[in-house]
Design a protein around this nucleic acid. Structure first.
Length: 135
DNA sequence: GCCAACGTTGGC
DNA sequence: GCCAACGTTGGC
């Protein structure tokens, strides 16, 4: 079981929309590092859903990988997408500011390489963020 | 709306 | 194959 973090601009695709639709395909990744991570995802892996650029950037919920990577249907070029399904919201959102303020999370890709739209999360980081969301 | 950081492109 | 320049992203 691996953990990931996927970012979305809520104007494009919000967690609320995800909740209503239950499932979506995660397309539009046009970055080699992100593509590498997409292709490493396995069915059943858990992902944090991160919303950027709308008020306070935050991790808002959890989704699961429903289908492993396949050709992104929105392009004929060599890009991948995956299917993800709604799992559960966090008890409360964990903001980027909180992640940055937590020393245990200083190594997270979210902090170090903010622009990466699909990134791996370690088990420790996952647990820590879940813990923060419950406090 | 500005600016910093990163990724990509293209010239050499 | 390196590196500078440019474009884009995203936080503030």
């Amino acid at each position: 079981m691996a953990y990931w973090l996927i970012k979305s601009d809520p104007e494009t695709y919000s967690f609320d929309k995800m909740k209503k639709e239950k499932k979506t395909f995660w397309d539009g990744v046009r970055n080699y590092a992100a593509r590498l991570h997409l292709r490493a995802m396995k069915k059943g892996d858990h992902c944090f859903f991160y919303e950027s650029m709308n008020g306070e950037p935050s991790i808002v919920g959890v989704v699961k990988v429903a289908k492993e990577h396949y050709q992104d249907p929105t392009t004929t070029e060599d890009w991948s997408c995956v299917d993800v399904e709604y799992s559960e919201p966090l008890k409360r959102p964990v903001t980027l500011a909180e992640v940055k303020a937590n020393k245990k999370l200083a190594k997270m890709a979210l902090v170090r390489i903010g622009r990466l739209s699909v990134q791996p999360v370690s088990g420790e980081e996952w647990d820590e963020i879940i813990k923060m969301s419950k406090s």
